[in-house]
Nucleic acid binder design. Structure first.
Length: 221
DNA sequence: AACTCGGGGCA
DNA sequence: TGCCCAGAGTT
């Protein structure tokens, strides 16, 4: 794909979502790390409902370790995977205290060593909390990148990340990440993508395919 | 590469 | 009801 076409895609999406940003409730790197960890397999909106109260009760790693696991599970019960997540939070806090003086490390390679923190979470933390350009490839970014042809249909998550970094100027990585998220979440949705109202449909391989042959919705006859 | 965890939102 | 969600760890 030509750099001109990539630029057109980026600019169009920027116009659609001029105020794209990180929607996770947080006010410091530690809270952001907790919020991203909690967000796995559920929406940010759901996470924020929990963290508003959670962050009032728990300010530091010590606070999370001061309560029994069952109490923390109860406090995050409203989101999915809460048993694993509660355990992850406490072991994360223990490690932060043991190895990092209770602070969230700024280096990507240190972040991914933390329990419950993978490559995607580390990218979100460095970009949103520490100002390091990064593109975190989640399900939205992966889906829209493949639909738009910014990545190949069979690329792994890591390959998608590399292709995006190659095609997008470094100082636009973080904002592009957020715009692709918004685009995927509110427009180029997994189930019912708004192709007929999409300014990119003419240049989108997947969009053209879908417009010609709309996906049949499952109907119970 | 496939599987598991898991309650909430939405059609 | 059934299916998916801004993942990561294990096998």
């Amino acid at each position: 794909m030509t750099s001109k076409k990539v630029r057109h895609i980026l600019d169009t999406i920027a116009g659609m979502f001029p105020d794209a940003h990180c929607e996770l409730n947080h006010s410091n790197p530690f809270e952001l790390t907790i919020a991203v960890l909690l967000s796995a397999q559920c929406t940010d909106e759901t996470v924020n409902k929990v963290t508003v109260d959670l962050f009032r009760k728990y300010k530091t790693p010590d606070d999370y370790l001061a309560v029994p696991l069952e109490e923390l599970e109860q406090d995050i019960r409203r989101i999915g995977l809460f048993r694993n997540k509660a355990k992850n939070i406490q072991s994360l806090c223990r490690l932060l205290l043991d190895k990092h003086g209770g602070q969230v490390p700024e280096k990507h390679e240190e972040l991914v060593e933390l329990p419950g923190v993978g490559r995607k979470t580390a990218n979100v933390v460095v970009s949103n909390a520490f100002g390091v350009p990064a593109i975190a490839v989640d399900t939205h970014v992966e889906r829209v990148s493949k639909r738009l042809g910014l990545a190949g249909p069979d690329d792994t998550v890591l390959q998608v990340e590399h292709k995006l970094m190659k095609q997008v100027p470094r100082d636009e990585w973080t904002i592009t990440h957020h715009r692709l998220i918004f685009f995927g979440r509110y427009h180029c949705k997994a189930q019912n993508p708004q192709c007929s109202a999409c300014p990119l449909v003419d240049r989108c391989p997947e969009g053209k395919r879908r417009m010609k042959m709309p996906i049949k919705r499952k109907s119970n006859k």
